[in-house]
Nucleic acid binder design. Structure first.
Lengths: 202, 202
DNA sequence: GTCTATAGCCAGATAGAC
DNA sequence: GTCTATCTGGCTATAGAC
């Protein structure tokens, strides 16, 4: 039993290293430009070994998405335990956390057009479950924020949800960072400000 | 002379048809997923004939971008002749025009990561010139709007410019449109509202 | 489970006849 | 300039030895 558990731990560590490489490469080059050869080289193992762990390139990307969603949920759970935070403050915290991830080059970017990738994702329950969980919690915060007046209640909650999701992949912070004239913190603050001011009642 | 001019006209019409197909396919599938075979099939000519008009797949995309930028400039020129419009109203008009284009499936989408494409674009003066012209006019409106108080003057003008550019490629309107619950006009109005409210002084 | 080597495929680009 | 046919390279995925 202990032996099996140990082997499983080794397996998980190896797979975690793979996902870390995939995550970084996805953030850097995007799904289409990322090659499996690059992933293998980055991890330091042979390409064929990769396919013993993950069935396809799409499965690699899905695993990266699952991990980032799981970490997002972890961050969200640290917020639900703090009743002094208002709903909009929670939303702002999550969005800011995602922006930090993006500026650190650790936000995997998936093209919405690629059909084979979408097919893999929509049949991946681990991915769908976590995505649903994130959406549910965000949605609850959104309607609460609309009820307390900090977000315009004439906006459809889905619009607000999609808008916040979109901010996590927005090119604007990356371009501002590339100009090199501002700190990451200030860039994030500006994006959060323009985003949440826009969602307020006008 | 007339003969040459006629031939040139035929050539331009054919190339215009090519660009129209490329534009639509770029909007629909993105650069990486679009294939030159598809373009040729859509235009109704052989692939080799395409390469008599454009040197590469990247050149096709660049031509599509040049045309959309040129049309954007046309729209902007209709605004500069109307002194009753405030700077922020001009910015809003241009952004709304781009959103219309996007919801009509005619906004070509280029991945910012693809390096060969970027290399072609940065050495394409027709593209760079038009991009500069758009940026200059938008920038002038932005600083004017900051001067008259309709846009927060503590925001760097580049941030505002990039934010408006980003809205033209934002996934949010497309997702909202796909839900089928709202008209294009209402979706555009919501996006413009959340965008420009966010840029106002708070 | 790891490796080397390779199969199989697809897409960008071109040759050469007309 | 247009076509058919083909080349070429790169990428996903796998075979098979260890």
């Amino acid at each position: 039993m202990a032996k099996i558990s140990f082997r499983e731990q080794v397996l998980r560590v190896r797979e975690d290293a793979i996902i870390t490489s995939v995550n970084r490469l996805l953030a850097e080059k995007g799904f289409d430009s990322m090659t499996v050869d690059e992933v293998a080289a980055d991890v330091g193992i042979a390409k064929a070994s990769l396919y013993k762990h993950f069935a396809s390139k799409e499965a690699l990307a899905a695993a990266a998405m699952v991990r980032v969603l799981a970490r997002t949920l972890e961050h969200m759970n640290t917020l639900t335990g703090r009743p002094e935070l208002t709903p909009v403050q929670c939303l702002r915290s999550v969005t800011g956390w995602a922006l930090q991830l993006q500026l650190a080059g650790e936000m995997p970017a998936l093209p919405s057009q690629n059909s084979t990738l979408r097919a893999t994702l929509v049949s991946d329950t681990a991915y769908l479950d976590r995505l649903n969980e994130v959406s549910e919690q965000m949605g609850a915060w959104i309607v609460a924020a609309q009820a307390d007046g900090s977000i315009d209640d004439t906006l459809p909650p889905e619009l607000v949800l999609y808008t916040l999701f979109a901010r996590a992949c927005d090119p604007v912070p990356g371009v501002m960072q590339a100009s090199g004239q501002h700190t990451d913190e200030r860039i994030i603050e500006w994006v959060l400000q323009t985003c949440f001011n826009g969602l307020r009642k006008s």
